[in-house]
Design a protein around this nucleic acid. Structure first.
Lengths: 198, 198
DNA sequence: CGCTCCCTGTCTCGACTGGGACGGCGCCGG
DNA sequence: CCGGCGCCGTCCCAGTCGAGACAGGGAGCG
């Protein structure tokens, strides 16, 4: 299900469903959205929804996964600032769809999506750490929680600072934990941009 | 062709084509829009376009006709302010789609659409005048030209006044011609809102 | 408890659509 | 003059979609 398809109708149906789901989540919150409401907004039949997705959860997951893939591919891994740029790109993405993420992660949000997001972020960072740590896998999970909680705070407070700044702050906090756990030196951009005001 | 259909797919196809055409006209101007570009933007096949419309001209006509029908039904004919309210509703509609109408009526626009608009407006006003005038049918045509030219001026000057005001001004100018031609008294709202500043 | 109501997820069949090909036309450059 | 190119308008067939019905479940209510 949901394999890449060349058929224009399939791509159009999925696009309309994605847009309708985002709009409805922003309006009502995720758990008040029904499949029928999505398909009605999208001008698509309920049958077509189930032909493409198992349920509304899978649709959200796919939207998020595609966004993560886009963010992931947004920056190459080579240059020294690549990690900073990646986090900025990620927070820019959250900024762009902030109403969606606020609805998914905030007070009206569903716990499973925050867990899904932590899981995705943990998978994103895990390859960068050696598996021979004292407690393998702990660091990526805790790091992901730091970023997700930063996002929740940022969204709940109506994004009081630019995406780039919250990205840097979060990365600095995470960097301290990484240095503690691995002995690695602090991030380059932390050295260039010390803890004071920007 | 283009009969009212209950099938959701037909309504969706037409809705997507309308939106795509409007977006493309605003971007490129009407005569630089091809059917292929419309269908590509709308995520619809070219075949589906021709199943629903004869050509791009008919699509624009239908968009305009539906808008006119909506404006026409927006106000009942009974109350004394109904005519003013109708013109305000019409100019509000033009205001809402001002980029579309600017592209259709302005310098890059096509002459046939201005003619189509004059024709529609003339048909709208014709029933209100007796057919026993010295030159039957002249008055509605000239009136429609007044309104269309008012819209062109308004759009070409980036809508310097609110829609309600340009509606009233145009209706006052038209009212003078009506009084001249028929001997009818000036419009009620003209008496209540004399020619000075508002 | 029963009853209602709404939503889910699945299925069938007729209807509409997409892909692709076709000939035709107008335009442009050689 | 010719040929290339892009767009138009039409056609066919396989594939997808919409309408509607269905059983099942869960929440609210008397």
């Amino acid at each position: 299900m949901s394999q890449p398809t060349g058929d224009l109708r399939v791509r159009r149906t999925r696009k309309l469903l994605r847009e309708a789901l985002i709009a409805l989540i922003e309006e009502r919150g995720f758990d008040r959205v029904t499949v029928g409401a999505i398909t009605e907004r999208a001008m698509v039949s309920r049958a077509a929804f189930y032909r493409n997705y198992r349920d509304k959860y899978q649709l959200v997951e796919q939207i998020f996964d595609e966004a993560m893939a886009e963010v992931r591919g947004h920056v190459a891994d080579g240059d020294p600032d690549s990690r900073r740029a990646r986090w900025v790109a990620f927070f820019d993405h959250v900024d762009e769809y902030h109403r969606l993420y606020a609805a998914l992660l905030g007070a009206r949000g569903s716990a499973w999506f925050a867990a899904r997001m932590r899981s995705a972020l943990a998978e994103l960072t895990a390859p960068h750490f050696a598996p021979d740590a004292p407690v393998p896998g702990l660091l990526p999970s805790v790091l992901s929680a730091v970023f997700v909680e930063s996002i929740v705070w940022w969204l709940d407070h109506d994004r009081p600072v630019p995406a780039a700044e919250i990205a840097d702050r979060s990365a600095d906090l995470a960097g301290a934990m990484i240095t503690e756990a691995t002995g690695w030196p602090p991030r380059p951009w932390s050295r260039r941009r010390p803890a004071g005001k920007k």
